[in-house]
């Protein structure tokens, strides 16, 4: 299923009523066969971008080509090439999983003789054979997401858009879905454009990550490249009974600038990296300070987000007003 074209967007803008610029000039390029993670808090413009790239929403300005087709001028061709599982698992609670797949295959023009086999193949692929003839209303959140994915794959698309595919899922369902998405990209060569607000999802799945905030892409690269931009790890010391956080903070600040730690702990970003650790231990010991815990944290995508936007991703979730389409 390897293909020559991925996704290219230039200056993509979408303005809503009231002048809200949900997407404010996005440039991106997703290579064929790549998993691209689009990371950002609620209201950052992720879903609006997906709606534009999947032709469900015309851009206010800018251009984009998906699978080599212009999203404005060649909407039907784009839709033939892509599959999409949008934010809401858009299913009909009164139909069974198999009926959904049959309908989807029929609407995509798959010949009647192939529909049954294709539906069965997809049901097996997402592990829904036992529940195939049950109404979707009785499915769990994870099952709905898996069916959603199967429906997106019905017509063998070369590019797959997944808009927050694991939001609200338990850990087990989430990792099962990650496994399937990874397999699609690695084995079938499907290009995956994945939006997420979970750092670990982008970290685990994406070949490259674009971080979006307030409609702008604020950072882009592989997870390793992005973390390398931050570079330095943090260390967090949690005092044992009797030790005061202030005393610990005084010592740690000699080794780097303070960052937000846990409620009980004190954290700093190390000025010289891991090599500072031995000095910290010696200094704490020489002052006779007892610790309950001392932890070293490697840089995360949240650190990248913090460095680029001045806020942590979790904090941004709460601040953002929902402006997505």
């Amino acid at each position: 299923m390897a293909q020559a074209h991925g996704i290219e967007a230039e200056g993509l803008v979408r303005t809503f009523k009231g002048g809200i610029r949900a997407v404010d000039g996005i440039d991106l390029r997703v290579e064929p066969g790549e998993i691209y993670g689009f990371l950002g808090p609620n209201g950052a413009g992720k879903s609006t971008t997906v709606h534009m790239l999947t032709t469900l929403l015309p851009p206010t300005s800018g251009t984009a080509r998906v699978a080599g087709f212009d999203i404005v001028k060649e909407g039907p061709k784009v839709r033939t090439a892509i599959g999409a599982a949008l934010q809401e698992a858009a299913l009909d609670s009164l139909l069974t999983g198999r009926e959904h797949l049959n309908l989807q295959c029929a609407l995509h023009g798959i010949p009647r003789s192939e529909r049954r086999a294709r539906s069965q193949e997809l049901l097996e692929r997402v592990g829904l054979t036992l529940a195939a003839d049950r109404k979707v209303g009785g499915y769990s959140g994870g099952m709905k997401r898996r069916l959603d994915l199967a429906l997106a794959l019905a017509h063998r698309p070369t590019i797959l858009f997944l808009d927050e595919p694991t939001t609200g899922l338990d850990v087990q369902s989430r990792s099962a879905l990650w496994g399937e998405v990874a397999r699609l990209a690695r084995e079938d060569g499907v290009t995956v454009f994945l939006t997420t607000q979970y750092l670990e999802e982008a970290d685990a799945l994406a070949d490259r990550v674009g971080i979006i905030d307030h409609g702008h892409i604020v950072a882009e690269g592989t997870p390793a490249q992005l973390k390398a931009q931050i570079g330095r790890p943090t260390v967090e010391a949690t005092p044992a009974d009797g030790a005061t956080p202030e005393a610990i903070a005084r010592i740690l600040e000699r080794f780097g600038e303070p960052t937000g730690g846990s409620a009980k702990g004190v954290a700093v970003r190390l000025e010289h990296g891991v090599s500072d650790l031995a000095g910290i231990v010696r200094a704490l010991d020489s002052e006779g300070i007892k610790l309950e815990n001392l932890a070293l944290h490697a840089p995360s995508l949240d650190d990248v987000f913090l460095a680029k936007t001045g806020r942590s991703l979790e904090g941004a979730e709460e601040e953002e007003a929902e402006v997505e389409a």
Binding site: L56, R79, I82, A90, Q104, L107, H108
Partner: peptide
Amino acid sequence: RDIQSGFLNRLALTPL
């Protein structure tokens, strides 16, 4: 219900 659940968007992505 199709509009509210997003099913209409799913149909819109097909050649319907």
